[in-house]
Amino acid sequence: MSRKGLSRYLGLSLKGVTYLSLILSNVALLGIIIYILVDGMGYLTWDFLFGPYRAPDLISIWPAIVGTLELLLIALALGLPIGIGSAIFLSEYSKSESKLVKAIRLATETLSGIPSIVYGLFGYLVFVVGFGWGYSLLGGGLTLFLMILPLIVRSVEEALVSVPKSLREASLALGAQKSRTVFKVVLPSASSGIVTGCILASGRVISESAVLLLTIGMVVNKVPGDMLSAGTSLALDIYYFSNFGMPEEAAATSVVLLLLVIFINLLALLAERLLRGKGYGKA
């Protein structure tokens, strides 16, 4: 074979390999989705979603829906302001060579790599045992907040750092104070990156199970009364149902979880489009 023929052959086979991996990855994904839909859709009834839970005849995931939303609320209500605030400090107000900043950066990187069960253990020792709250949604939410904090800090900081320096200079050269420059120019320009970071963080909260196993107690049959009562989440329900011989219920819960994730992604898309319409996000 001539050299030209060989390189052509290599090029073609490489193309083939990439196509194959594309097909494989998508087939796997599609397979999962179809499997879940086929198994679960039949079980999605009004009572299953919103009805009371009276085993063994009436199974409902309403307690899990309430629990998941409460966990999301606690984790994001704390995680977004504190995470975005820290990221602003790191990228705008600190000198990037300082020892403190290097230490913080190392810490956030390490923390975001820790397996979630370790966070769960921490939450168990501190909130469940240490504070004597027992299993509670609040304890679980706080643990999730600690878990997603480094994630939010890192993604928001990355978004802020990618805003060109020339925009900051333009604002300062017009006689704007630093704070105005940060809030009116830098943050809006980084908005789509920030939104993406927040969505990733909510995804982690929704799909987390290991942390919650150790902190909120997996009480699948009772709607939580307040933040300090034990509860469950959608991901925990899937674990529970599949462990206790209810695979169809587990599949149906997965459908709900899947829809929730899709809904949040659509929300992010919408937010990005709205921001882009204002001219942001392209900088």
Binding site: A170, L174, K184, S189, G281
Partner: peptide
């Protein structure tokens, strides 16, 4: 900096509308 304005080498408009760019200062 209000009294001594500056224009940079590369055009650096804010990613906003034309109106908001001028109304910023």
């Amino acid at each position: 900096r209000r009294k001594v304005g500056m224009v940079f080498q590369k055009p650096n408009p804010f990613p906003m509308s034309i109106y908001d760019n001028i109304a910023y200062a």
